[in-house]
Amino acid sequence: MTRRPARLFSSAMIAAALVSALPAASAAESDDSAFFRQVAGKWSGPGKIVEGKMKGTRFRCELDGLPIEGDTQGFKLDGKCRAGLFTHPMTAIFIREKDGYRGRFLDGEDGDGLEVTGGSVEDGKAVIALRREEVEGALVTNLIGDEDLNITLLIKGGTRYVPVIGLSLKRQTDPFSVGSVD
């Protein structure tokens, strides 16, 4: 196996963590904005590479999500993922445009990252199209209630998509928040 597939799996792990909450262009604008707000906040949880050279590798991610508002609509995610003793910083930016989404993970397809090429949102599930050079992929993200976010990264192999990475995040709440008593 060459270095390119190993780099792809590394980038795929990063992508799984970073793209965790991005709806795609075909959903109504208000649905996209609502989804962006729902996934904003702090998320943490375990993941596992389920296919490929690094199969069985477990990792943990801690991510901060913020919707981008104003003239540009979108989502920014920053944080880190750790596998064993190694920690890797994560950054992703996703911007809504008239005809779809553009975005990148890390430094995009020109570096060691991935490019967002499109997608859709339906019934609380975001399916995001990804690309790195000649490799196509998809990220399926499910927001389950307000506290759980499940992510599966798939890579296209021949005519079908093969699951490569799974990630389960939980919303992190402030343990010092105090509610009012009436």
Rank of each mutant, 00 (worst) to 15 (best):
residue 55 K to R: 02
residue 86 F to D: 13
residue 91 T to V: 07
residue 98 K to Y: 04
residue 94 F to W: 15
residue 43 W to Q: 03
residue 54 M to F: 08
residue 50 V to G: 00
residue 45 G to F: 00
residue 80 K to V: 01
residue 63 L to T: 01
residue 84 G to E: 03
residue 80 K to D: 10
residue 67 P to F: 03
residue 65 G to K: 15
residue 100 G to V: 11
residue 46 P to Y: 10
residue 71 D to E: 01
residue 99 D to A: 15
residue 83 A to N: 01
residue 62 E to Q: 15
residue 73 Q to V: 00
residue 38 Q to N: 11
residue 45 G to P: 05
residue 77 L to I: 08
residue 84 G to S: 10
residue 57 T to V: 04
residue 87 T to A: 07
residue 97 E to G: 13
residue 85 L to H: 08
residue 83 A to W: 02
residue 48 K to R: 10
residue 49 I to N: 10
residue 102 R to M: 06
residue 47 G to S: 07
residue 101 Y to R: 11
residue 62 E to K: 11
residue 80 K to G: 01
residue 58 R to E: 13
residue 44 S to D: 09
residue 70 G to C: 09
residue 92 A to C: 10
residue 43 W to G: 00
residue 80 K to R: 09
residue 95 I to C: 11
residue 44 S to N: 07
residue 94 F to V: 12
residue 92 A to P: 05
residue 47 G to Q: 04
residue 72 T to I: 15
residue 94 F to K: 14
residue 51 E to D: 09
residue 61 C to G: 07
residue 101 Y to P: 15
residue 98 K to L: 04
residue 97 E to Y: 04
residue 71 D to P: 07
residue 67 P to D: 07
residue 61 C to S: 14
residue 79 G to H: 13
residue 78 D to P: 04
residue 77 L to N: 07
residue 60 R to I: 06
residue 84 G to D: 06
residue 45 G to L: 06
residue 51 E to N: 13
residue 74 G to K: 15
residue 42 K to E: 04
residue 84 G to F: 00
residue 99 D to T: 09
residue 85 L to T: 08
residue 87 T to I: 03
residue 79 G to W: 05
residue 62 E to H: 15
residue 59 F to V: 00
residue 68 I to A: 03
residue 96 R to V: 00
residue 76 K to V: 02
residue 56 G to I: 04
residue 44 S to H: 15
residue 62 E to S: 14
residue 59 F to E: 01
residue 55 K to S: 02
residue 75 F to P: 04
residue 96 R to H: 05
residue 87 T to K: 05
residue 42 K to C: 03
residue 55 K to C: 00
residue 89 P to R: 06
residue 52 G to F: 02
residue 88 H to Q: 11
residue 74 G to Q: 07
residue 87 T to Y: 14
residue 63 L to P: 05
residue 76 K to E: 12
residue 79 G to I: 08
residue 55 K to Q: 09
residue 64 D to H: 15
residue 65 G to F: 02
residue 60 R to M: 09
residue 49 I to M: 09
residue 85 L to S: 09
residue 66 L to Q: 13
residue 79 G to Y: 11
residue 78 D to F: 10
residue 84 G to N: 01
residue 97 E to L: 13
residue 75 F to L: 11
residue 65 G to L: 06
residue 50 V to S: 02
residue 39 V to H: 06
residue 85 L to K: 15
residue 102 R to E: 14
residue 53 K to P: 13
residue 78 D to I: 12
residue 98 K to S: 02
residue 68 I to G: 01
residue 89 P to V: 03
residue 60 R to D: 14
residue 100 G to Q: 05
residue 81 C to G: 01
residue 54 M to C: 09
residue 88 H to D: 06
residue 47 G to M: 00
residue 94 F to D: 10
residue 63 L to K: 11
residue 87 T to L: 07
residue 94 F to N: 08
residue 81 C to I: 04
residue 75 F to D: 04
residue 85 L to I: 12
residue 52 G to H: 12
residue 43 W to R: 01
residue 50 V to Y: 09
residue 97 E to Q: 08
residue 66 L to Y: 14
residue 71 D to I: 08
residue 73 Q to T: 02
residue 68 I to K: 15
residue 50 V to I: 04
residue 49 I to Q: 13
residue 86 F to E: 07
residue 68 I to V: 15
residue 92 A to T: 14
residue 100 G to L: 10
residue 41 G to H: 10
residue 84 G to Y: 14
residue 91 T to C: 08
residue 53 K to M: 13
residue 75 F to K: 15
